[in-house]
Computed example of a mutant assay.
Amino acid sequence: MAKYRKKPVVVEAWQLIEGTVMPDWMLEARRTGVIQPCEGGAIIRTLEDGPNGEAKHVASMGDWIIKGVKGELYPCKPEIFALAYEVAE
């Protein structure tokens, strides 16, 4: 079976920590309903959700919210984020 490596891409990410300032893309996502605050975190509509947004992804406090290459948002647990991402120059 073949093995594959993820292409190196630069993404924007923000850690969901109470009291931190949201970047503009997060504020826009809240304004448009892509992300909605909930108790203990946020609910995110992602590309996989389909046209009616039936499926939702939950980001808990401390999780990272990543803006992908197509502008999609998705949550990532801090320990996975630390393994998969590093600061880009």
Score class of each variant (00 low, 15 high):
A59G: 04
V34G: 01
G33W: 03
K3P: 06
G19W: 14
W14C: 07
M22V: 07
G19I: 04
P23Y: 02
Y85D: 01
E28G: 02
W25I: 15
G41C: 13
G33F: 04
G33S: 06
L27K: 01
E12I: 09
P8M: 09
M22N: 03
P37L: 10
L27T: 09
P37N: 14
I66V: 15
A42N: 10
L83R: 14
P23F: 05
M61E: 06
T20V: 06
M26V: 13
A55D: 09
C38R: 14
C76L: 12
G62P: 06
L47V: 10
T32V: 13
A55E: 15
K77L: 06
G41V: 01
E48H: 09
I35Y: 06
A13N: 12
P51R: 14
R30P: 00
C38A: 13
A82R: 09
E12F: 08
L16V: 11
P75I: 01
A42G: 08
E18K: 10
E72H: 00
D63M: 15
L47D: 15
A84L: 15
K6R: 05
E89F: 00
E89L: 00
S60T: 07
P37C: 04
R31V: 02
K77T: 07
I44F: 07
G68L: 13
S60E: 03
Y74N: 03
V58A: 08
K56Q: 11
G62R: 02
W25Y: 12
G68C: 13
I17V: 14
